[in-house]
Amino acid sequence: MKGIILAACLLAGLHTAAQQTVTISGKAQGTYYMVKYLSKDTTSLRPEVESLFRQIDRSLSLYLPGSLINRFNEGEKVVMDVHMRPVIRKAQEVSRITGGLFDITVKPLVDLWGFGVVRHQKGKPADAEIQRTLQRVGYDKLLIRSKYLLKKQPGVEIDCNGIAQGYTTDVIARFLQSRGIRNYLVDVGGELMAMGHNDKDQPWTVGIERRQEDTARPEKGWLRLTNRAVATSGNYQRYFDEGGTRFAHTIHPKTGEAIHNNIITVTVTAPNAMTADAFDNALILLGVEKGLAFIREHPELGLQALYIYKDADGTVREKYSEAFFEVQ
């Protein structure tokens, strides 16, 4: 029996040795991307990967004039394409599960606070402006009817930036699978999907943000993944300060307020990148204790999370769900 096991291990090693690590990287969707995979065929897949980015942008990019999402925001309805359909359905599902803490109709509020496509820093909007804008927000104001996406009232607009990069990561992962590639790491702007192992026959190791005692900014940590996705959302990159309060780009869809809680970052792992990407903002809004309780109460979602936050005296701390650092 030992001989059989040894032979199997040697064959696995030879199989891995016959493959090479291929890396593709570049700029897309306003950020970077990196695709790393093992293959005997080292012919670059860059043209196909970048074609996928262009297809998704034509569907979901707010920055591309004439995109499908912009046509919806400017009109009343659209016929959803192969990319918009799964993103909208997933967004509505996450909205229901989180009680509306994740909501793609938050776009009017994002624009109002100055974090949208047209950036501005006018400061905190007046309460009356926030209340007026909230009347155009709510995932229940969208209607999916067969292939159509419709608005239940005028003025509803959607922003899929909180889920689209995770979706893109998954699309590229499925493309690699379709080419017979079983060992890969896909990273689109920090939304990652890992499958299989690296060229050393070890789980993929990815950088994450961990606690750092002497500053509000996180430091680098590491996470090992074999069949898992990871996404991080933080409040230290896009924000403005006013009246001693720091307002970050995450907007609460129920109150209309830009978030100003004690969370620095939350890193989420999930079975796929779209799920991790969608839930990271909701978990920030829930906060540390409620967020970790939400994960325990919904084991069917397959979520794990690491919070970095400031306690009452300003000390930077971290807290994470039970299985977060297990090889996943």
Rank of each mutant, 00 (worst) to 15 (best):
K27H: 08
A312T: 12
H83G: 03
T31A: 08
V82L: 09
T105S: 10
A305S: 09
D111I: 01
L62P: 05
T42M: 10
K124C: 06
R224S: 15
K36C: 09
T267V: 13
G66Q: 11
G190N: 08
G302E: 14
Q92R: 03
G138E: 04
L286C: 04
V288S: 03
G196T: 03
V106C: 07
L176F: 00
P271T: 07
I104F: 00
T269L: 07
V106N: 07
D140F: 06
R210A: 15
D140N: 03
L285G: 03
V327E: 14
V118W: 03
G162T: 12
E191M: 00
L286R: 05
G180P: 08
T250H: 13
D103N: 13
V266H: 00
L11H: 09
F53K: 03
T105F: 11
S51K: 04
V87W: 00
Q19G: 04
Y320K: 05
N235R: 11
W222A: 14
V266D: 04
R58V: 05
E191N: 02
R317L: 12
G256V: 00
F325Q: 06
S146D: 08
A231Y: 13
T168M: 06
G116E: 02
G291K: 02
Q29V: 14
L283H: 02
T226M: 06
Q135A: 14
K290I: 15
A12T: 10
G287L: 08
G244M: 13
G256Y: 02
V82Y: 06
R228H: 07
Q237R: 15
D280V: 11
I264G: 01
H120D: 04
E50C: 07
P203F: 00
N262G: 09
V268T: 12
T205Y: 05
I259G: 09
T265P: 10
D170Y: 00
V316R: 01
G291D: 05
H15E: 11
G3A: 10
T205V: 05
V188T: 14
P65R: 12
Q131I: 00
Y309A: 04
A293N: 15
L38P: 00
P299F: 03
E219P: 01
V268F: 05
T133V: 10
L285F: 04
R119P: 00
L52Y: 10
